[in-house]
Every structure is written in structure tokens, then in C-alpha cells.
Design a protein around this nucleic acid. Structure first.
Lengths: 360, 360
DNA sequence: CCTAAGATTGAGACCGGACTCACATCGATT
DNA sequence: AATCGATGTGAGTCCGGTCTCAATCTTAGG
């Protein structure tokens, strides 16, 4: 009928108003569903809008409402199912409340994170959910918080930053699972984490990630309670790619006084550790016990199925989004973020350590 | 020093201009790095901006440039590592070119997809990458394309829609892997997919997803070439949650004329199928051969390691983003999207079928 | 020393909605 | 019939940038 060529410009309220023979203001009111509009006008405007396939420009709308109905999510790596699931919880919840999600990956790099936060702020997101790469370098997050922009932290705390934080009680679960290993007879328990540090682990070292330092603390408490010393020499940081993790694993198991149990700090590391163990021809749990954080579905399929520490990741994503949206919508009630607890799921990868001559 | 209270309003060019004692226009030019500005003015403006911690409002900028530097990504489920990895490829590439990503999940529901596309368009994204839930219901995508908005499809084609599509040659790899199974002696080869349909599979049925129908075609060709008939009764659609997949698997293996090999159409399904096989007390590959799409890392850890069809998912994400950005930046050269091919990685889950009395 | 090309600069329009304000309209109140 | 609060309605401003345009300043060539 009319101009069917792919015309460039979008249809605006002004166009609709003209077609409906009313003022721009009236058209805007009818379309935006606010103010007073007579039935007659509303009908004509809506009909014209339909006819012209009018779609509001959310950008323009955000301009003067100040709300973009968008939240920014900054995570280390969506490729990691842990974050994938959390992100799912966030997006599901956001969508339910009419919010969209802009996602940015940081590769656990603080510089990238600072940049991501800036970009998101420039885009005027209504709020931010961040899984901070560092619990120490947090000035950028502090600035966000001080500027009054809603902010919720996921997975890790930020030292000295009093914001809603959705995370499990890592110290507790770390303590419990370590005690479990100690109870099974293990003394040489290794812990492998990706946390990047300039130097290898040593006692008393300040760890950049609350998640990791809490776990270390939990392990230490468990050892203390058992009247034993935490084997500092078996705590390994800087586990990066598959290759480096396998190297670390080999080292842990082939040293003079080898680890009899290994705890992997996440599912991706766990994968490589198990691979390395298999490559060494060792058997789980006969030769070495294994336990990892993240209850990925595949852990049920290995032989033996793996004992893991399950975190309610999806629910945590939901809670983070809910808390953020609550802040955005300005409910005064802080309505404390629920506490989440991790759970030790005992499958088959932990057993008593192989008895060696040392015991005699 | 100055007002330290958390003031609400953001700093604008006008504020900076005032502080630098120049006109708004000049300040904007200095900040936006366009037009002619004297060194003196530039310095003062930049200093003032720094001092006031000025940050441009990207929304306002997008308003009149018409570009949001944001691309919309619509996928079935980021929780699925397949999409997680693809998304990673997209975000990495986008970031490198200065684009941000808004992500929306559809749960493979066309209604949700239509909605997602609309929302993204309203937000004036510069372009869209969509993994269409359906290859048949594609009017909404066609409309996007016709409106001239850059669009790239991922993983699946949309019938009759001539847009850049990043996908592997499914028919080919399906043919090859089926031939491989046939070569190993299998005749009763099952195929399990999540594709939702109102009714069970029957010969000649139109399948909603190009991915699935291509695979069916590939299987059929392989059987044809071997002078055999494709066992229609072993093609199962509507595999939903873990429970239903296990049920389907049990049924496939416990029927009178059971499947001797199962192909899972993605890694999530594969997981449940393997679980069900283990629950039945059957062994892979002695009792039943198994092969799945998606080369997830954990497939190396099971006993035996699984034979899989690997797709260069990350690279496909990269290619999709690159193609989209190319469109956005208006390069006339179509620069055809590269062809991707999947690869059959033979690990240990395929063997000759157990010899039964039937052969005599 | 004069003039024109080129560099600077400020005023103001504009993007597409939301919203304020002043001015009708209109049935209801007394 | 005069008055009043409750709608309806249109003109115009604003949000925070970009960009056009005309005016002003420099500065080099003649």
C-alpha cells in the first residue's frame, strides 16, 4: 500500500500524533498510559500506532525517566557453568521484574572489572551485580556504592564494603569438609586454586579473594581442632590452564611426602586435577581422595562419582537479582539477603588414605 | 573539599563547560574529540572534566548518534555450556570492537524469543545475534531483517531467511558419525533430542529445527548408502528434563528390539542418557555404544571416555560477532561467513554391538 | 596594509520521549 | 444561573549529548 521501501527512520510519537490528528502530548499520554486521555483520542492514537507499527524508543524514555530498566552483571567467566547458572538465576529474576541484563566478562582481571563497571555506569544501568575479582582492590566498587548506585556482590565479599553480598558461608563448609577428610584419616590434604598471586602460598599470606581466604581459614580451623598443623606446602595458588593444573597435581602426588587428598577450589580445576590423577595411573579414592567445589552434573558420571561441595548457585543468582531490584525500587527495608549454605555431597571419591610405612 | 554529600545528579557537559569557562559546544567538542578546539580550551575542559569526574551519558550520546554500541544476543539457555562458550566468543569479540552485549534467554520458547527481539529492538541495539528456537516460525526475524537492522543467526538456520548464519554442516557430520556407527556394525541406532513437538517422530515429519532435521537427513543418507533403513522408531524427540530423558533411554534399551547405539543431540541430554545407562547396570561400550554432540571437557573423564562430535563453538561465537559487527559498520563486502565443520572425536564409547542370537 | 582562507567559538536546533503549565470543557453543586 | 473541582488538551521545556550555522579571530599571501 504505502511506502514499502525499507525506510530508515523509526516511527515516533510525533508521527503517531500526526496520523491520529492529535497533539504530540496527547499521543504520548495515550501511548505511555499516563495522564488524562479521552476514550476517543486513546482509540485513535492506539489505532494509528498499530497501523504505523510504532515502537517506543527506550533510549529516549530512559533519558528523562532516569531509569534504564537494565542491570549490569560483571562476572569472571560465563563460560564457567558456575557463573552460567548464577547468570541464569539473575536473568530469570530480572526478566520477571521487567529488567534486562548487560553482561560483561572480566577474566578475573581487576583492570577489566574496573573498566566494565565504568562502561556499565556510563550506560546508566539501574544497578550492578558484581562478582569481584579481588576482595582487596575495591575502590571502584566503593565509588559505585558511594555514588548511591545500587550494588550487590556475588560470591565474594569486598573488604570494608558494606553492601548486600550473596555468598555462602565458605569458612564453615571448608571447615566441615576438611574435618571430614581428617576424620577419614587424611593429614596431607592439598588445596588447589586459580587465585593469581605473585608468589607461592605461605603461612599468614593475605589472600586477595575472600572466597579463598575463608576456605583457608576453614581448613586451618579444622586442622587446629584436630590438634594438627595445616600443611602449608600443599596449598597451591596460581593454578591456571589445564596444563598448569596437571603439573601442579603431578607435583602434589609425586613429591616425597605426597598429598593423600586433594581439594579443588572449583569445578574447572577439579576437571583437570582428576584428569591428571588418571594420567598418573592412580585411582580415586584408593590412591588419592578427591573433593571439589561445584556440584556439576557430570560428577555423578565418573568412576567413582565425585564427592563435592554443592552451592545453591542458581538461587544465589536469584537472590542477588532480587536484592538489587529491591534496592533499585527503593524499598527502605534492607530485608537482609538470605544466608546461603553449601552442602557436602558425599559420593565416592573420598576414602581412608592408603596405609604407608610412615604410620609405624 | 567541595560538596562531599552524595549528590544525586550526574555531571554533564554543561557543568564542565561552566567550570572551564567555555561554551557547552566547545566543551562537548573537546570531550568528544571532534571539531576544532584550541589547545588552551582543550586543556581547560579536560582539566575541569577530570576535576568534576565527568562521565559522558552514553544514553544521551546514543540518542542522537543512533548507535548504542550494544548488540543483543538471544540464546536458548546460557546455563548450557554450549551457549556459555559461544557467548564467551561473542562477548570477547564484541568487547574488542567496543561493543557491549545484552543477553536474553528464551528457554527455547518462540514466544519468549519474539519478546526478546522486541525488547532488544526497543532498546535500539545496533544488531542482533539470535540462536532461533524454531527454524520455521521466523516472521519476527524476517521483520528484523527487513527493517534493515543487522542480524546474524547462530547454530540454526531460519527457513527462507537469507541472513548470515554461523553454523556447522550438521548434515555432513551426522552422516559421517552415523556411517561410523554403521561401520562398527550397528543397525539399531537411536537419536535423542530435546526438540519439542506435539507428536512423536514419524517418517517425513517436518522438524522445527534445522539443526535436528539436518541431523536426521544425515543419518538417513548414511543408512541409505549402506542399503539400510533408518530406524524411525528409535528417533526420540521431546526429551526434556533429566527424568524424561532417563525414561526414554530405559525404553530404548529395554524394548524387544533394543537400540545398540545411542546418539544424544547435545551434552545435557548426553549426561542424562549416560546416567540412565549406568543405572540400568549396562556398560558402555560393551552393552551399548554412545555418541553425543558437544565436546564437553568432562567427557574425557568418564569410564570409558566418550566419543563426541566437537563443534568449534567459541570460534562460531567469534565469527557471529565479527559478521554482525561487519554488518553494523556497513562494510559492503559481504565477506561470507566462514564455514565451520564439526569433528568426530573417537574416544572410547563406541564399539561393535553385542552379538545376539538374532544374527543366526 | 588589506583580504581571504582557515581555525575557533557560541547560540541554538535536534534526537524521542516524559512531563509541567495554562487554558479549555463539562457535569455537578447550591 | 454562577461556581468549582475534575477531566481534556496543546504548547513548550527538559534530559544530555551531537551537530549545524553564522560570527569572530588568525594569519598568510598579495
Amino acid at each position: 500500500m504505502n511506502s514499502d521501501a525499507s525506510r530508515r527512520r523509526d516511527v515516533t510519537v510525533a508521527d503517531v500524533a500526526r496520523a491520529a490528528q492529535v497533539s504530540k502530548a496527547q499521543a504520548a499520554r495515550a501511548l505511555g498510559n499516563y495522564g488524562a486521555v479521552s476514550d476517543d483520542v486513546r482509540e485513535r492514537v492506539l489505532a494509528a500506532a498499530e497501523e504505523l507499527e510504532y515502537r517506543p524508543n527506550e533510549l529516549a524514555r530512559s533519558m528523562n525517566t532516569g531509569k534504564s530498566h537494565t542491570i549490569g552483571v560483571v562476572v569472571g567467566d560465563i563460560e564457567n557453568p558456575h557463573f552460567g547458572l548464577a547468570t541464569r538465576g539473575i536473568t530469570d529474576t530480572a526478566k520477571r521484574s521487567g529488567f534486562n541484563v548487560i553482561l560483561i566478562n572480566t577474566d578475573e582481571d581487576t583492570e577489566a572489572e574496573i573498566d566494565a563497571v565504568r562502561v556499565l555506569l556510563d550506560k546508566r544501568v539501574d544497578g550492578l551485580i558484581v562478582a569481584p575479582a579481588s576482595s582487596v582492590e575495591t575502590q571502584h566498587l566503593r565509588r559505585v556504592h558511594e555514588s548511591g548506585r545500587p550494588l550487590v556482590l556475588l560470591d565474594r565479599k569486598a573488604s570494608g564494603l558494606d553492601v548486600d553480598t550473596v555468598a555462602v558461608d565458605m569458612e564453615g563448609i571448608s571447615h566441615d569438609s576438611t574435618s571430614y577428610l581428617i576424620g577419614a584419616g587424611h593429614r596431607r590434604i592439598a588445596f588447589v586454586s586459580t587465585l593469581k598471586t605473585g608468589e607461592p602460598y605461605r603461612d599468614g599470606m593475605v589472600l586477595d579473594s575472600s572466597q579463598i581466604s575463608d576456605r583457608r581459614d576453614g581448613m586451618k580451623r579444622a586442622f587446629d581442632e584436630a590438634g594438627l598443623d595445616l600443611p602449608d606446602d600443599l596449598i597451591r595458588l596460581n593454578a591456571g590452564d589445564n596444563e598448569s593444573i596437571r603439573k601442579i597435581t603431578r607435583e602434589l602426588l609425586q613429591r616425597p611426602d605426597p598429598a593423600t587428598a586433594i581439594i579443588a577450589s572449583d569445578g574447572l580445576i577439579g576437571l583437570s586435577v582428576v584428569e591428571a590423577i588418571q594420567e598418573l595411573g592412580l585411582r580415586i579414592p584408593d590412591d588419592v581422595s578427591f573433593l571439589m567445589y561445584d556440584d556439576f552434573a557430570w560428577t555423578r558420571l565418573t568412576t567413582p562419582p565425585l564427592t563435592v561441595i554443592a552451592q545453591p548457585v542458581y538461587d544465589m543468582g536469584v537472590a542477588a537479582a532480587a536484592a538489587l531490584i529491591r534496592q533499585i525500587e527503593g524499598r527502605k527495608v534492607p530485608a537482609a539477603v538470605p544466608e546461603f549454605t553449601a552442602e557436602l555431597i558425599r559420593r565416592g571419591s573420598v576414602a581412608a588414605p592408603r596405609v604407608t610405612g610412615a604410620g609405624n
